[in-house]
Design a protein around this nucleic acid. Sequence first.
DNA 1: ATATTATGTGTAACCGGTTACACATTGAAG
DNA 2: CTTCAATGTGTAACCGGTTACACATAATAT
Lengths: 327, 327
Amino acid sequence: MTTIKDVAKKAGVSVATVSRFLNDSGYVSSEAAKAVTAAVEELNYELNPVARSLNTKKSNLIGLILPDITNPFFPELARAVEDVALTYGYTVVLCNSDEDPEKEKNYIETLKKKYIAGFIVTSNQLDAPHYANANVPIVALDREINEKIPTVSSNNKEGAILGTNALLERGCRNVLFLRGPEELNPANDRYEGFMEAIQKSDVHYHVVTSPFHFAESQKIVERMLNDNPQIDGIFASSDVSAAGALKAANTVGKHVPNELQIVGFDGVAMGEMLSPGLTTIAQDVYKMGAVATRVLIKQIENKKIEQKFYEVPVKLVVRGTTRSVAE
Amino acid sequence: MTTIKDVAKKAGVSVATVSRFLNDSGYVSSEAAKAVTAAVEELNYELNPVARSLNTKKSNLIGLILPDITNPFFPELARAVEDVALTYGYTVVLCNSDEDPEKEKNYIETLKKKYIAGFIVTSNQLDAPHYANANVPIVALDREINEKIPTVSSNNKEGAILGTNALLERGCRNVLFLRGPEELNPANDRYEGFMEAIQKSDVHYHVVTSPFHFAESQKIVERMLNDNPQIDGIFASSDVSAAGALKAANTVGKHVPNELQIVGFDGVAMGEMLSPGLTTIAQDVYKMGAVATRVLIKQIENKKIEQKFYEVPVKLVVRGTTRSVAE
DNA sequence: ATATTATGTGTAACCGGTTACACATTGAAG
DNA sequence: CTTCAATGTGTAACCGGTTACACATAATAT
């Protein structure tokens, strides 16, 4: 392995000069620069990032902490983070936290020892001290951590309004809202949006809490549909729940979209594969990941960040679980 | 930050002794051990992995190279890799290759500079020199790289036989096989399995190549179903294709499973959410990832590996796209 | 003409560990 | 009573970079 010393020798300069040239720090004459360039080329020199890290206490690692990559929301996020990180020369470390604060803390400490450059975090441990005192650049994704940490999320409330109105415009008179877990910020924002939109109308509604879990949601919706046969619209605050609702409609024997219309939230690929295809409020998950990564890298590189909150727009994707709009 | 020197001073020994104690290498008297333990405890000392790496040219990073984490097959794999890696004290770096040899090569080189401990790779670049000459522990996942590299995969052929027979036992007389891309080993193994099983019967069959892509598969199956209305069974070599087939059946107006039975391959979560639920050959993806990781770590730690090939069993999961077996 | 400042370079300390080697002591073998 | 191996420890070189500092020269200011 060729080292900076080899380069220095070959170029006839000192290692300091080589290092200054490579890092574009301090003065380097053009002759020296040329000589070093040539030597680097000739020896095929590549800087050792570990040695550099040891000195600078920096690295180009980014930690991506999320509850579970298996949850269909996250792969696209991870993909975006990785893509953007790569273009800026960073490498992504994957951390599944299972929402466990201990695991999160562990990752943070383990990676800090490696001089990790920063973290992108999806967590509910809103004010956990291991974040507040992490002393490392962090960007919160999807869920807010605290006021000091920049946050990137979808415009959840706006999306919920959009979704609710989609049902209303299509003639629903009795809407069931499947709200997500109360400890999730995005779920709460969606709830707010739903309430705001539905209360502007004179439409009857029900709200039921349901985890973002297929079989659970199915069961809950089956019960609701049996108990309240007048329900003609369901707004689920996740696509997985919406899929459960669709399945429930099938087993209960309600035709979708004729007797019952369904709108989901998330825009995961699976929605398209259902029959009928799932109408949903699609989040631009990729964009969320990309924005978060760019914000993080700005932080890492000490550039100033324009805002503390970044809201990525959502949009209504109309497929088969809703009818066409009444004119 | 407390260093090994601080510990040495506090314990009244040399850094060499501390290091020997911490690494359990060389001789350390019990008094010295006790003193060091106490000093470590008191100073809250934690070893700096970067400094260690620089010396040992080793790290506890594992690279996970896969085409695209967004593909529903991979998140569970990644999860397994991470889980197992964590229990052995390794950290996972996520690398999306898009099947691009350049990207793969890049990752390998970038990470080798960081003294990465090893790679888990899902790639088609079967004999690419960057793997053959990587000079780093590697385990191939799902797809074989070359004879020298341990490989973990599902028992694809066996699975295909299972799936084909499932259709035959349920009375199908005209089966369409959606085979995957020819450059994919697993797809070929599944093809072999299908052929072996179908040719043992006197059932009529068609084989069509179809990418593991929902909309494409749907289109292909629609065409096939229109051209060959006698088709009464479809075996898709991926769940995504099966989902496309199911959708096609819907649009063409074939009732599943009464007029047409469908079996997929993979066992991704989405299968359950379809209506009717997808009967499929489920791979134990988590297990594949876990086994691969354990094999890799064995390699890294220079323990001997029992085998070069690890085949993880698959199983038939019966749901709604098939009828009950004729007695 | 002299004082400053800007430019350019090298030496050596340092980042925080590991380890080769030299040296000392102890116990067992011959 | 030697002799040699096993046990135990410290010094210092080393991993491959970065950078403070000292020093030299050229350019500009006074």
